[in-house]
Amino acid sequence: MTVERAISQDTEATVRQHQEHDEAGNSKFGFIVFLLSESVIFLSFFVGYTIFKTTTADWYPEGVTGLETKEPLINTIVLISSSFVIYVAERYLHDKKLWGFRIFLLATMAMGGYFLFGQTVEWSGLPFKFQDGLFGGMFYLLTGFHGLHVLTGILLQGLMLGRSLIPNNYDNGYFGVEATSLFWHFVDVIWIVLYTLIYVWQ
């Protein structure tokens, strides 16, 4: 009986915890699981890129010798820095300083926007098309798919910014902002791998 009693009391404590378990905790866990799964799509594209690159004789389309790395590097630096900016925004929200949060979130959006703009400029200046061989296909597929994620991130940030205008919206937790921030870090990490594969490894 005593053993049982001990178990019961132990579990009573657990119940209390359980009772208070926040749905945001579940959502965060679920979101991380989702991001891990999403990263496998990128992983499979990266593996595909590697296989194609190592097995194809004429990797670059005719007239293309490689990719310009300078502008993309600036782009990269902007995108990666924005990860720190959004972190600062999150800290401000944590300390309930809404204006700081809004300013830094807006800054993140601007940096993401700059990245997309830079991508578009780069795309429009390239001498090869989506249909130009495996390299053309893989290049636009990878950068385009990643670009879509960046765009999604910016839209999410805009949503969070809009929500911050609703009074008291973030008083009881801010899972949405955490998720947006996580997503943004994820997009950055993916870009680092992508940049290494496409631009550094030529």
């Binding site: 699981v33 891990l36 799964s37 999403e38 990263s39 496998v40 799509i41 992983l43 499979s44 594209f45 595909g48 194609f52 989506f130 249909q131 061989g133 495996l134 053309g136 296909g137 893989m138 597929l141 798919f145």
Partner: peptide
């Protein structure tokens, strides 16, 4: 499902692009 399906999704996206957008994966 979580680690496997994304791979099929990746392949399906490339197949769809080959079929409709003229890529040559």
């Amino acid at each position: 499902q979580l680690y496997g399906l994304p791979s099929l999704t990746g392949g399906a996206i490339m197949l769809l692009l080959d079929l409709t957008a003229g890529t040559s994966f």
